[in-house]
Design a protein around this nucleic acid. Structure first.
Lengths: 216, 216
DNA sequence: TGTACATCAGTGAACGCGCGTTCACTGATGTAC
DNA sequence: TGTACATCAGTGAACGCGCGTTCACTGATGTAC
């Protein structure tokens, strides 16, 4: 319903998203959002309980855009006949969309995964959720006999962790100085290792034991 | 040299590190550090150019502690005869130390990888650098015939990304609600996939093509 | 359809906070003779 | 060894900033009759 302003709540969310885009989560303040909309800070309190509440909306927005980026990449890929090709293609598209978004919209990416508030959920809140598609791709790899059953549980998390860690190391970590060519190279190498690891036979008990060690 | 205070610079760095430990990078301020040491904020400007400079020292401290944690885990593992076992053991120890540190000292971990200032370097600044040991472990896997040569370049980054991403998803992301048992389970699965991926044969061209797609 | 009234979105001013940083200074330490 | 002096680490006060949040209010919108 439109009163004085029209739709101040959404206008403030948009302003918060723009702030997040250009300045990351720390730039999302009630005062700045109100200023950008051309309204008094007090007015924002009609629509948000506090600053945390506004930031939460910016996080949700950022997550939605991340989701869009992954879906866009999924739709760009050609349809493939072979099940394993199709499933690995989906995996690659999701990873590619994730990285593209992180590099293209670092402020939003950092906001989506910033500390505090509700953490981004695992596949529940967003329509057309790419996390579910990742799950489906891994299920398909299992059914096609590519992925050993013992390795199926939580395999999503390994893929996600790899992409997420790589994005973070590029944005804020030691890989900041990478050229685009180096970024692409490292991306391809990492993805190949992941795909090969999903498809490889189980490690021998000796090697597993050496690798894992003891939980401390 | 000890003047009025004795060693104010180091005292301030210690205070900054404590602030980072309990409150993350955002808690590292000149005023708070000076307050904790019992000194005027102005005094800090005798030793640091500005707040960024102090934060940089806290980052360096955090990185050193992270390095310690990995080395400690490396020393805890028994020596193994088999080259591949030894190399995978080192890989696992480094990953375990990394994760342990992130979970035990989240404030320091976030500080080490916080945005701004100098990014943590790749293996140069710290004595007894675990990144170099990771490199050596991968070289050993190559020489032992476990890791195909085509997969060697930048393999460090895949392992690091996996551990880093997993740590971040645990600390600030959707895995915050994981129980210790779930954390351990996901950790083991991810590490196995990585180790298997390093040792697996090269993917077929068809699968590689489906996986990678085109750089956009 | 018109009027009195209730609702409530947004205003304007102000609060207290902690921050980074600068200024003119003081007083302890080190040094030249 | 003693004294005058220079150095410089730390003080105390203050600046301006942007923030979150609250208060009493105004004036436009919607509604009851």
């Amino acid at each position: 319903v439109a009163y004085h302003h029209g739709d101040l709540r959404n206008a403030l969310i948009t302003a918060a998203a723009d702030l997040a885009r250009s300045g990351g989560p720390g730039a999302v303040t009630i005062r700045a959002a109100a200023r950008d909309v051309g309204v008094t800070p007090t007015a924002a309190y009609r629509h948000f309980a506090d600053q945390q509440d506004l930031l939460q909306e910016a996080k949700y927005y950022a997550l939605t855009r991340l989701s869009d980026a992954m879906n866009a990449e999924l739709h760009r890929r050609p349809a493939l006949d072979n099940r394993v090709q199709r499933a690995l293609g989906a995996l690659g598209a999701i990873a590619r969309g994730y990285l593209n978004f992180a590099l293209t919209e670092p402020g939003l990416f950092r906001t989506a995964f910033s500390q505090g508030g509700q953490p981004p959920a695992l596949g529940i809140p967003i329509d057309d959720d790419p996390f579910r598609k990742l799950t489906e791709a891994l299920d398909e790899l299992l059914e096609a006999g590519y992925l050993p059953a013992a390795r199926r549980p939580m395999a999503e998390l390994a893929a996600w962790s790899l992409a997420h860690g790589y994005a973070m190391l590029l944005l804020d970590g030691p890989l900041q100085t990478f050229t685009p060519a180096e970024r692409e190279e490292a991306y391809v190498r990492g993805l190949e290792i992941m795909a090969a690891g999903l498809g490889a036979t189980t490690l021998s008990p000796d090697l597993t034991k050496a690798l894992i060690g003891l939980a401390s």
